[in-house]
Amino acid sequence: MASQGTKRSYEQMETDGERQNATEIRASVGKMIDGIGRFYIQMCTELKLSDYEGRLIQNSLTIERMVLSAFDERRNKYLEEHPSAGKDPKKTGGPIYKRVDRKWMRELVLYDKEEIRRIWRQANNGDDATAGLTHMMIWHSNLNDTTYQRTRALVRTGMDPRMCSLMQGSTLPRRSGAAGAAVKGVGTMVMELIRMIKRGINDRNFWRGENGRKTRSAYERMCNILKGKFQTAAQRAMMDQVRESRNPGNAEIEDLIFLARSALILRGSVAHKSCLPACVYGPAVASGYDFEKEGYSLVGIDPFKLLQNSQVYSLIRPNENPAHKSQLVWMACNSAAFEDLRVLSFIRGTKVSPRGKLSTRGVQIASNENMDAMESSTLELRSRYWAIRTRSGGNTNQQRASAGQISVQPAFSVQRNLPFDKPTIMAAFTGNTEGRTSDMRAEIIRMMEGAKPEEMSFQGRGVFELSDERAANPIVPSFDMSNEGSYFFGDNAEEYDN
């Protein structure tokens, strides 16, 4: 993207840094990872977990959730003011799984939030270390993106479920800051804005008074975040219109849905970061690795190297396929839920299948599930090659597409044709070009129609051997075009429920 120079890199967003050079960025990201790792080690000690239990991804998720809940100030305040039966607002906890007599047992633990905050700050040299908290939120978000298709949420806001490739980060909490905003897809931002506008339509006082002023500035800020994701002048001009509207209503909703559809071809720039579970960072720190000293990046080879040398386990339900569970977590670790499966298959070195073909449910185990038949197995999170994460949407291309997802959002900077089903997408653009945004709409449609099938995206960008740390010898991959490109292809993934 041309304006790259004016933006802070995501590592800076990730670490609240002012302008830093590459070495400083690597050190501050490393410091953040160190903090998460030290916190995780301490929690495993508190909970008396064995090494194996500490490497269980379900335990990692519970521990991450506990610290996120302990620092969720708004919710904590709300819980104190609106006490609900049987919930102690000062405590947080969740299921911890232990191996007892050759069987997995679930144990519900409860801790004072104050105590968890103390352990977290102690692991982070006394700081609140917001960057580390956001990092864990993005890992949870990436896992949700890989596990669930947001059909219901899309339909509720009037969008087409086939636009799911635009929904990265749709389950990120509001408090995820600049680093969170960077990884949100165009569809996620559109959905947040539509929800806001709908509230304004239904509630006369939404934009009024002292609160209304705050609401208005939040609305304009979200519009600017979305505008910054678009790469064409016409899309940005249309966002200006939406932002400046005196009284946002149905016309703005129409414009936003139009823009979301246009992003299936004229893709937005959305950041991709490899955020790993805390149970990967903990053992690495415990083994003596100093992330701050060595430096770390979320968008280069580092996460690949770390996963190459990590042992992570997962509980497996009786009829689940461990290899499929591994694929789910591998995609989440690489922030690749909406990437082209052919690119992923090449990088991973084994075939990556669409969601609907995987015999696996989510990673988390519900409290009512029976533990008797639970097994555990090693997650295979290694890769054959590594590639640089991208934040450009890439230019655009036609490809055989599917009944489910009709476009992709690249996660890796790797040369390819970008699949999208042009006739299906263009069919949504018939007729409606009147109104105050008509010239911009016409211009956007013209650009979409001009998108050429034979153009290559990320020209000359390749993948790298894991021994090639400096990215000196790019390998331009070859793809098996007979395979499906979309992950949520004609899909039956479970729906995400809060």
Rank of each mutant, 00 (worst) to 15 (best):
A442P: 04
S367I: 07
E210L: 08
P419A: 01
A284W: 09
S482V: 13
N319A: 03
Q399Y: 00
A403L: 00
Y97M: 11
N211D: 09
Y385L: 00
T147G: 08
P474S: 13
L154G: 04
R174W: 14
D480M: 06
R382C: 07
T433S: 02
M481L: 03
R391D: 11
S482I: 01
E465N: 10
D255W: 11
R102V: 03
A387H: 11
S297N: 15
G17D: 06
L68P: 03
L381C: 10
N76T: 02
M66A: 07
C164N: 15
Y97D: 02
R267T: 12
I36E: 10
V67E: 12
E449G: 13
V414Y: 10
S217D: 08
R446W: 12
G209F: 08
P318H: 03
N309I: 00
K103M: 03
C44Q: 09
K305M: 06
N397G: 06
V414I: 05
Y487C: 15
D439W: 07
Q4R: 12
K273E: 05
P322D: 04
I41N: 14
L133H: 08
R152E: 14
L418V: 00
D480Y: 05
I33R: 07
I63C: 06
P95V: 06
E53K: 08
A403K: 00
Y78M: 08
R461Y: 12
D203N: 08
M196G: 12
M163P: 07
I96K: 06
P354W: 13
E244T: 04
G282N: 12
N334E: 07
S245E: 08
P477C: 11
F479K: 15
E81T: 02
S245W: 08
N321L: 00
L298P: 12
T15R: 09
Q4C: 00
S297F: 06
I388C: 10
Y289A: 07
R38S: 01
S141G: 00
P318C: 15
I347R: 09
H272C: 08
V242I: 03
Y281A: 09
D51P: 00
A403F: 06
Q4H: 08
V242P: 05
G404H: 09
V414C: 06
S310Y: 01
S353Y: 05
S359T: 08
P318Y: 06
N368H: 13
R389E: 04
